[in-house]
Design a protein around this nucleic acid. Structure first.
Lengths: 338, 338
DNA sequence: TCACACTTTGATAACGCTCACATTCTGAAT
DNA sequence: ATTCAGAATGTGAGCGTTATCAAAGTGTGA
């Protein structure tokens, strides 16, 4: 079943059928109706491959994320899929497992051409690696790795959110806030560094000293990782009266480790997460968390991508690249804080 | 940059380049090396759209699931993506939000052609709806909805797993086991009915009566749904000494509701989940669960799909459709059971 | 009646690849 | 030398769509 078959049946040319299907102007209402009826009649469906080959459009948007088993990206994917579906686009998922090779592979030219647009969360690659890649495909980067200036980039309000969370803990009496995923050096502009910066700012503002032993670096921000980090901290004998975990997933591991240690939350130790995922509401005890504006962020991503897809490519003069930092982080206080 | 450009540069025809790229026989080692060198030299990448149009292959496998924000499908997707990647295939995700319209849309002919193969988890559609759809694309169904006999179908050991779980609860002294997601009628062959059947079998074997009020039907198997179900049960005043939730996600909601009610787990009430997701290990208390053989299931899915993709289509005489029921369900006992 | 603008429709040629088949080459057997 | 099998390589067509531009149809004013 090809377009030409529909055309023959409707007594028009393939071009007219194409025009009807793509909503182009220059088709009389009468013809349009006849063609539409024939399409419905024959149950015709366009061949995406042919359209892609000829027109260079695929109708698919790639989302490249480090993992999907954690709650954060799965929830982001769900939101994005919904928003893109409204615009007639598909979401195709690729996982990199946070490996630089897989990140590079995912943005390789051949792969890129599979998509009309790309939403990419980098964890390992940085600007230098990206410079080699010439993006004709519109891309929106999310996350905190530095990105070449030609690209759209959306970041959470990491500093602000972390500052807010830390202020709250300090004001509620905590004086020794362990930070799971923090960084000792403030050199890089990645998520851990930025959130640590907010943590430090809040301490500075309220005049509280930070014991560097409270800053626990971790390899990943998963639940097992959070569990291990807190177990290690506990065993190392450093006293603490609050824990700020840089993701909800890690906070879940922290809660588990605290329960194992027989510590009461929030009486003995307060706990704060980051992301405000749907699961926080159901943990025991319910996790207080930083809501970074997840819904607004997904909308903004799709909006930026749409704009750039309409324009054609990245860094064009017509559509200057946007760097958006979400600024609406707020706290959602539940049972793990006083 | 086209294949013909590589061919010209290497002093061969496009067909030879194609043969090299696709690993076909009939190319001398010398020529192959020269072509490969030229490809690397020019940085050539095949155009998937053209290949797809001409050869009818896409290199992509679709996974159609009701949701991704819950842990179960996200973890399944992660496993599948890994196994498929090993075979040079992509995983493309589509969510149906458990709506029949979206399920039908996902298996519509036009969509199907985007994929070399499809892994489909049905929740709402049944055999009658599927009969209308002529599948040329290889499909493997997962989950418990009945499926036309022409298709491959993989099911968990629902009855066995539920029986195992219920036996354990009964043997550890429970006499009033609430079942979240159970079915009162045993008519349909879907997941809730099958697991309820295992629950009934275990009771029959050990000669324990079931109070029908303990069988709580739910709309979905999410955490909020589990929470609501248990809250409702609690408020309705029906006594119970154990809860068997048909998914870990629902069990998580149950644990939260029990904590709200001030009930101790497992002293007052034992809790058992199903799926043995990665999060069970970190809940407070750690959730005992039925491990249905998730890893083996993902492998089996890919294996079946691969076989059928090699063969061409569904229900062919050469490759008779397989209905596989995984039989290796086992219990993983943690802290929510005695 | 004719010229002219404007709207609607159609013919043709790609897009880049691979299938089917044709051709050339190699070396051993006759 | 000649034949021939088998391996290596090339030729040409066409997958289904859409961009371009040409052609036909429609109506208006001189």
């Amino acid at each position: 079943m090809r377009m030409i078959d529909v055309a023959r049946e409707a007594g028009v040319s393939a071009m007219t059928v194409s025009n009807v299907i793509n909503g182009r102007t220059g088709v009389s209402a009468e013809t349009r109706l006849r063609v539409l009826a024939t399409i419905a009649d024959l149950g015709y469906q366009v061949n995406h491959a042919a359209r892609h080959l000829r027109a260079g459009r695929t109708g698919a948007v790639g989302l490249i994320v480090p993992d999907l088993d954690g709650p954060y990206y799965a929830q982001l994917a769900t939101r994005l899929a919904r928003d893109l579906h409204e615009r007639g686009l598909h979401l195709v998922l690729e996982q990199t497992n946070a490996s630089p090779e897989r990140e590079l592979e995912a943005i390789s030219f051949g792969r890129l051409r599979m998509y009309d647009g790309l939403i990419m969360s980098l964890l390992r690659l940085d600007a230098a690696d990206l410079d080699q890649v010439s993006f004709e495909t519109p891309v929106v980067f999310i996350g905190e790795r530095p990105v070449p200036p030609a690209f759209d980039h959306i970041m959470m309000d990491n500093v602000g959110g972390a500052r807010l969370a830390t202020r709250h803990l300090l004001k509620s009496g905590a004086r020794r806030i362990a930070v799971i995923g923090g960084r000792h050096d403030d050199g890089t502009e990645d998520m851990p560094s930025l959130r640590t910066r907010g943590y430090r700012q809040a301490h500075a503002e309220l005049g509280v000293e930070i014991d560097p032993r409270l800053v626990v670096e971790v390899e990943s921000f998963t639940t097992p990782s959070g569990f291990r980090a807190l177990t290690w901290l506990q065993e190392s004998g450093v006293p603490f009266d609050a824990v700020f975990a840089f993701t909800d997933a890690a906070a879940m591991g922290v809660l588990r480790a605290l329960a194992d240690a027989g510590l009461q939350v929030p009486q003995d130790v307060q706990v704060m997460g980051f992301d405000n995922g749907t699961e926080t509401e159901f943990l025991v005890p319910r996790l207080s968390s930083v809501e970074p504006g997840n819904g607004a962020m997904a909308e903004r991503i799709v909006e930026l991508l749409d704009r750039r897809m309409a324009a054609g490519g990245n860094g064009g003069a017509e559509v200057p690249p946007q760097v958006t930092t979400m600024v609406n982080a707020r706290l959602v206080l539940r049972e793990t804080t006083r």
